[in-house]
Design a protein around this nucleic acid. Structure first.
Lengths: 229, 229
DNA sequence: GAGTGGTCTAGACCACGCC
DNA sequence: GCGTGGTCTAGACCACTCG
């Protein structure tokens, strides 16, 4: 039974974690490895490529592959749609539209979305509930210059996230996470005290090099983003 | 000139973003695609496999590949070593050890690290500065049962993170991000007011199914974690 | 059972990056 | 130059899963 690329990957990772191959040291070439594992070079290549993608090793032509000195650690967080996040926990989802308006973009937003003076945006404030308690506060701004159909869309029954996904299926996004303090309004909506620390996610969605929408999601008190690797 | 896997990937992604292939729709099989692009199936396979890894499409044997209904979005955040993070911004790095002790693990930590009663831990409190201002507060607990050499290690000159990386090169980690309010001590160390919202990262590092170390990193006021995709 | 993706092979050519 | 990884090919067998 020949070694699969998973076998090879596991074995190499093992040698690294057990300290047989130390950080900074040179790993044998693909041809050598192919011989020792009794497999084709392509198979070894796939194992090594994945290890490189995961930040475990560093590869360079001519010089070969090395164990990274400082493991380049990356954490992958899923970016869930609130509704799914809540429903996957077996809770009932409820949505409420708090406010909806079409206005000229305020200056701070104009800068963010690279809008011209006078450009109009749709501004929405929504709340997402899990089992009846506030889960997430959504402050959404949609660029009407790029997405004019957002002016007449109806967000009273379901949130803008799902609507937007049907309009711009895929896009590039900038996500930023920070801590913020609850102001009076947030405190009321999220059922906490003013000043309470809250986790906030900001997201700018771009499409064809234009920013289509900007959203500020404030999570319920105590919310955590967790991941393993 | 034959199509590379990148060409194919870009082209398919284009069809999806332009809406030619709508969410939920079936994508041609690998053999069909290989023919249309004039390449081998392995090449198409790589393109499709990467699109699946990135959460753009969904693949199932027999039924084929489909454009995901809700793009499974994942954000990858780099988990930097504070020192590197600071130095990459062109700031000078300074480290200070605030407190160091070896104690019996408190109950809350025993639960977290799955320690037996009476097991001892090394507890360290450190500060990391960028250009002289407080950048990050580190509250570190090291399992001395698993890592006895931590008892005699010297952390007065450099932080435990770098030392730990030399001891346990690779490991699995659980990361959790939340917002917290500054207490008196944190406020003093991070130069902010008590009650200020702060971004906190908690990390449990496991090795051979044992938790080796737990750390609570509290970032300076206003700190953001940002990523793009 | 049959279709689709998952993986492997043996061989080939290319491109980068060190000397 | 020349060694190493990066990629492609043509063909093959396998494994999952749907009907």
């Amino acid at each position: 039974m020949p070694a699969t690329y998973r076998d090879i990957k596991t074995d190499i990772l093992g040698k690294i974690t057990r300290g047989e191959w130390k950080p900074g040291s040179l790993i044998p070439g693909e041809l050598d490895l192919a011989e020792t594992y009794g497999s084709a070079r392509a198979t070894v290549n796939r194992a090594m490529r994945e290890l490189a993608d995961e930040g475990i090793i560093e590869r360079k032509r001519k010089s070969g592959s090395r164990v990274r000195l400082t493991p380049l650690r990356q954490a992958r967080f899923d970016i869930p749609v609130v509704r799914h996040e809540i429903e996957e926990q077996g809770r009932s989802y409820r949505y409420a539209l708090i406010r909806s308006e079409v206005i000229a973009a305020p200056d701070w937003l104009r800068a963010r979305l690279a809008l011209a003076p006078g450009d109009r945006v749709r501004h929405l404030v929504c709340l997402h509930f899990g089992d009846g308690t506030p889960w997430q506060h959504e402050d959404r701004w949609i660029n009407l210059t790029l997405l004019p159909q957002a002016e007449s869309a109806d967000f009273s029954a379901s949130g803008p996230t799902e609507w937007l996904m049907s309009q711009i299926p895929f896009s590039s996004v900038e996500i930023s996470i920070a801590a913020t303090a609850a102001d009076e309004v947030l405190a009321q909506h999220l059922d906490c005290a003013p000043g309470d620390p809250l986790l906030m996610t900001e997201r700018s969605t771009r499409w064809n090099d234009q920013t289509v929408t900007y959203v500020r999601l404030v999570h319920r008190p105590g919310h955590r983003m967790t991941t393993r690797y």
